[in-house]
C-alpha cells in the first residue's frame, strides 16, 4: 500500500513537470505572434513606432494619434468592406450549398463517373490557383460577353470574383462534406425513406441536421478565406471600386510616395475586427466542432 502511494506521488510530480514544460514551450513559441499583434495595436494609434515604442515627430516616446484611422471617413473603405463581406458571404453560401449537395451525392449515390469525379476534385484541389489565373481570365471574359449574367458574374465584378473563389474552394468543401456524410449511418437514411420521406427531405430533414457542426466548420473556414482573399480579387478587379479590403491595403502602398505603415496597420486592424468579434462569440461553438458530431444521438 505504502509503495503504491509513493509511486503515485512521484508519478504525479513528473506529470506536473511535463505539463508545465509543455506550457513553457507553448508560451515561448507564441511570443513572436503576440509581439506582432502588440505592434499592430500600438502602431495604429501612434505617429510612428520604434520597435514597440510609439514616437512623436521629435522622437520622444508618446505621440498618440487617431490620424491613422482617418480612412474610416472615406466612403471608399466602406465600399471595399462591403465587397469583402459580399465575397465572404457568397463563398459561405455557395461553397456550403454546393458541397453539401455534391458531398451527399458522392457519399450516398452510385452513378456513372463517380470515381472519376472524386479523383478529379482531389487533383483540382492540388492545383495552385496561381497557375490557373490566365485561363480563369479568359473564362471571365467569356462570361462578361453574356447578356445580363455577364454584368453580375463577369470580369471586374464582385460576382465574378466570388464565382472564381467559390469554384476554387469547392474541391476542399466537397471532400470535407463527403467525409461528414460518410460518417452518418445508412440505417438512419433507410429508416427515413421507409417512413415515407423523399430523397430531398431525407437530405434536408434527417441528414443535414446531423452534420451541422461540420457545416459550421466549413462555413467558418470559407468565410475567412473569402474575407481575406487577395490574389483573385487583385487579379480580376481593376481599380479599388469593386475590390476588397486586402486589395485596398495593397493600394495604400504607393510606389511613388513613402508608405505610411501605421495607416496600413490601422486598416489591417480594421479588417481583423469583425473576425475578432466573431471568434469572441463563437469560441465555444468552434471548440465543439471537433468533439460534437452525432455523438449526442445514436
Amino acid at each position: 500500500m505504502a509503495i503504491w502511494v509513493e509511486t503515485e506521488r512521484t508519478g504525479g510530480l513528473s506529470r506536473q513537470l511535463r505539463s508545465s514544460m509543455a506550457y513553457v514551450l507553448l508560451i515561448v513559441s507564441i511570443i513572436p505572434i503576440l509581439v506582432g499583434y502588440a505592434w499592430l495595436l500600438i502602431a495604429t494609434f501612434s505617429y510612428r513606432t520604434e520597435g514597440l515604442l510609439p514616437k512623436d515627430a521629435e522622437g520622444h516616446v508618446g505621440g498618440w494619434t487617431l490620424a491613422n484611422w482617418a480612412f474610416v471617413t472615406d466612403p471608399l473603405i466602406w465600399r471595399v468592406t462591403l465587397n469583402s463581406l459580399l465575397i465572404a458571404l457568397a463563398m459561405v453560401v455557395g461553397v456550403g450549398l454546393a458541397s453539401s449537395l455534391a458531398g451527399y451525392a458522392l457519399s450516398r449515390m452510385n452513378f456513372v463517373g463517380r470515381r472519376g469525379f472524386l479523383s478529379m476534385t482531389l487533383i483540382l484541389h492540388a492545383f495552385p490557383s496561381v497557375t490557373l489565373l490566365i485561363s480563369i481570365f479568359f473564362v471571365l471574359q467569356a462570361i462578361s460577353a453574356l447578356p445580363g449574367f455577364g454584368n453580375i458574374f463577369g470580369y471586374n465584378t464582385v460576382g465574378g470574383v466570388a464565382l472564381v473563389m467559390v469554384s476554387l474552394d469547392l474541391p476542399l468543401g466537397i471532400w470535407l462534406m463527403k467525409g461528414f456524410f460518410d460518417n452518418i449511418s445508412w440505417d438512419m437514411e433507410r429508416a427515413a425513406l421507409i417512413d415515407g420521406a423523399s430523397r430531398f427531405r431525407v437530405w434536408w430533414e434527417i441528414i443535414m441536421p446531423q452534420i451541422r457542426p461540420g457545416l459550421a466548420a466549413l462555413a467558418i473556414f470559407t468565410f475567412l478565406t473569402g474575407w481575406s482573399a487577395y490574389l483573385i480579387p487583385a487579379t480580376f478587379t481593376i481599380g479599388t471600386k469593386v475590390s476588397n479590403l486586402p486589395v485596398y491595403i495593397n493600394y495604400l502602398m504607393s510606389e511613388t510616395s513613402p508608405t505610411n505603415w501605421n495607416q496600413i496597420a490601422a486598416v489591417g486592424l480594421f479588417q481583423m475586427i469583425p473576425i475578432l468579434v466573431f471568434f469572441f462569440f463563437t469560441q465555444e461553438k468552434l471548440l465543439n466542432i471537433y468533439s460534437g458530431g452525432t455523438k449526442g444521438g445514436v
Binding site: R190, A191, I206, G296
Partner: peptide, 8 residues
C-alpha cells in the same frame, strides 16, 4: 434496425 436508426 439493429442500430435503432433514430433521428438524434
Amino acid at each position: 434496425f439493429q442500430s435503432y436508426a433514430l433521428y438524434p
